[in-house]
């Protein structure tokens, strides 16, 4: 442990490239979370337009779910290749 991060957080990965991908992945996760709550969800959580007969407020949550799933999957595959 060097002095520089004595009081800071320890990264689980040390390689700079992996670190930066991890950072972007965390930003992605935070964005998905914010899409499900204030401030992003209020902008889009309306009834219109109906998609496949389902109100957009519901469709949006499903889109977030799929986005999160594919994001996780991509990260998992990337991590396995490294």
């Amino acid at each position: 442990m060097n002095l520089k991060n004595k009081y800071g957080l320890m990264y689980s990965v040390q390689k700079p490239k992996k670190k930066s991908v991890l950072r972007w992945f965390i930003v992605f996760l935070v964005l998905v979370q914010l899409s499900l709550i204030w401030p992003i969800y209020p902008l889009v959580g309306h009834i219109e337009p109906f998609v496949l007969g389902i109100p957009f407020s519901i469709i949006w949550v499903l889109l977030c779910l799929l986005l999160s799933f594919f994001g996780l999957l991509a990260f998992f595959i990337w991590e396995n290749q490294e």
Partner: peptide, 13 residues
């Protein structure tokens, strides 16, 4: 109503 989406939303992440 759609408040029930809460159940789905918190499990996503």
């Amino acid at each position: 109503g759609v408040a029930a989406l809460y159940i789905i939303a918190y499990g996503i992440l």
